[in-house]
Simulated assay, not measured.
Amino acid sequence: MVPDGVPVSELVSLTPPEQVARTALARAKAAARARGLRPGQPARGTAVSSGAAPGPRDPQPLSVSAGRLARDLGWEPGLVVGDLVHRWAHIVGPQVAEHCTYESFEAGLLTVRASSSAWAANLRLLAPAMLARFDEALGPGVVVQIAVLGPAGGHGFGRGPKRVPGRGPRDTWG
């Protein structure tokens, strides 16, 4: 509605939707004729029947269709992260999973957090073996680098009324 109460359709003559659709169809047919295509004829260079070998017109397994859909919609990175988080303990092993948690994954860089500085040092040494396991489990080139972080937070020894001066136990506590 226009502010003075008169509908827009009375002020402007609109093309009926049927006419717009007919015009678009006529343009598409003309473009196809210009390329040499005729209705009812197969496109040049395509087989009429699929034959003995599988073709694009044959039924596809659901995994192929779902994979193509995920790739076309850009979901693959999120699916890889979900698979990585879900199978974390299986991929890295139960002992490493007990002392190492997933933090983030972005552009091939996997960031993990160790439970102590000693485990962080061990994980840095185990990085090449872990990369091989990720290649085996998730596919080659998905995880290309591993960043290992030390333990998070801590006990906050520098705060409170009973604060003890000095360096304190740092991140090796626990």
Rank of each mutant, 00 (worst) to 15 (best):
P77E: 03
G153V: 01
G74Q: 10
A66Q: 14
A137G: 11
A120W: 04
G5C: 04
A34C: 05
L73C: 11
V6P: 01
E18L: 15
R33E: 11
S115L: 09
D171H: 12
E76S: 10
G174T: 09
W119G: 03
P3H: 11
H99W: 00
A31S: 14
V144Y: 01
A53L: 15
A32Q: 14
A137P: 06
A32Y: 09
A24M: 10
L73M: 10
H99F: 00
P94G: 06
G40I: 06
S104K: 09
P39G: 03
G153N: 05
A127W: 02
R27T: 08
P169Q: 09
H90G: 10
A89D: 12
R167A: 15
V143S: 00
E98I: 03
P94F: 05
V148M: 07
R159G: 03
P169R: 13
P16M: 04
L62R: 14
W88N: 04
A121T: 14
G82F: 04
T172L: 03
G166Y: 12
G36Q: 01
E18R: 14
G154Y: 00
V6F: 10
A47V: 05
V92T: 08
A30N: 05
S117P: 00
L126S: 10
V85Q: 02
L138M: 00
R33V: 03
A30M: 07
R163L: 12
H90R: 15
A147F: 02
P61G: 02
S49I: 08
H155A: 13
P3C: 04
A52G: 15
R22I: 01
V12W: 04
P165K: 08
P3I: 04
T15M: 11
A53Y: 10
F105L: 15
A137C: 09
G93R: 00
E136C: 08
H155F: 12
P59Q: 07
